[in-house]
Design a protein around this nucleic acid. Sequence first.
DNA 1: GAGTTTGAAACT
DNA 2: CAGTTTCAAACTC
Length: 264
Amino acid sequence: MNYQSYNNSAGYISSPEFPWSQKKEGFEDEFEPQDKQILRDTYSKFQSKFSIEDQPIIQIQEQLNSSPSLNQIQDEKQQQMMQIEILSPSKLLRTDNQLKSALSIDIQPEQISIQEESIVNSRTRRKASKANYNVDDSPTLDSDIKPCHCAKTNCLQLYCSCFHNRRQCTQECKCSDCYNDGQHTDEVLKAVEQIKIKEQRASHHDLDSFDTRQVWGCKCKKTKCIKGYCECFIRNKKCSSHCQCSDCQNKKQKTQLNKKIKKI
DNA sequence: GAGTTTGAAACT
DNA sequence: CAGTTTCAAACTC
């Protein structure tokens, strides 16, 4: 039974606050107090969010009980996208604007300020705007992905950004002797298999070499982690304790952390 | 566009 | 695991 039928069949006179609160004459009060409490709770929680009129009481109660937190929602979206990527090596999802917008990318304010500092040089700024690092926090339309230029690896090693992202090389690529062209599936499968075997041998963690979202920590020595060589920087991520970088300028700013601590 | 630099990936 | 080499991308001129 949904709210509307409850309201009508039970003979209740609607009031703006609790539509079921007043009983019409001649109708039996067939609802248990706990049921009514459920409806009150439901209504007060949902009235500003969306209409509950067509939803069964039980269903609404289930929604309340299982109402996910924001983090849970984001995790689910991320899992859905990962699942789609697994099913779609060519990353067709990149062209799906709905899915893209479903996963918001969290860019921290301090990250932006560091990036701005790093592109003071106008030439660098121009180059940076052109750069596409072929990682998942970058522009993600297929047309935005930069073609590879592999010369020696047949586009079958992780050096190849196309292969690394599990998509085929395109006509725009300037690679030589490309096996990642969709016509050498055996070779590609073997190459993937080899990399997976290597992963298992290394087995430091649940590493997925083909998940370009993963950041395992950079080792930048000269570029202060503020150039496109840095795997953290190009993903708009701060360097962390996992990194082995030197003279890093891509860390969380201590002053802001101190302010937060003082507030606490 | 050619050459250099860089750091990840691969190798020993 | 550490050191070295190879590689392709980022960067400079």
